[in-house]
């Protein structure tokens, strides 16, 4: 791919960088306990937590770095951090 003039780029390529591989702990989202407050989505520094059709939330493990903020801040303790199996 030829270089862009002046080291410029359009968005999109950041997603080539699958930061999920950085993870040591993996958040497990328990929809049973979830109150659908969306705090996990709001506070995720990756912006990788998404809402499904029923209003539940799940992380995109391609990008989730496993920081654990979602688990720490979940008011219902519906997210558990578990050792990543690699």
């Amino acid at each position: 791919m030829a270089l862009a003039v002046g080291c410029r780029a359009r968005p999109g390529k950041a997603r080539d960088n699958k930061t999920g591989s950085w993870r040591v702990f993996k958040p497990a989202f328990d929809h049973e306990k979830c109150s659908k407050c969306g705090m996990c989505q709001t506070l995720c520094p990756e912006g990788c937590v998404h809402e499904d059709a029923e209003g539940f939330f799940d992380p995109d493990y391609n990008y989730c770095k496993g920081c654990g903020i979602c688990a720490a801040e979940c008011p219902k303790e519906a997210i558990a951090m578990k050792q990543e199996e690699k």
């Binding site: 002046g6 080291c7 410029r8 780029a9 359009r10 968005p11």
Partner: peptide
């Protein structure tokens, strides 16, 4: 047409 200028 959002473009990033001055990347590293």
């Amino acid at each position: 047409d959002p473009i990033s200028f001055g990347m590293y």
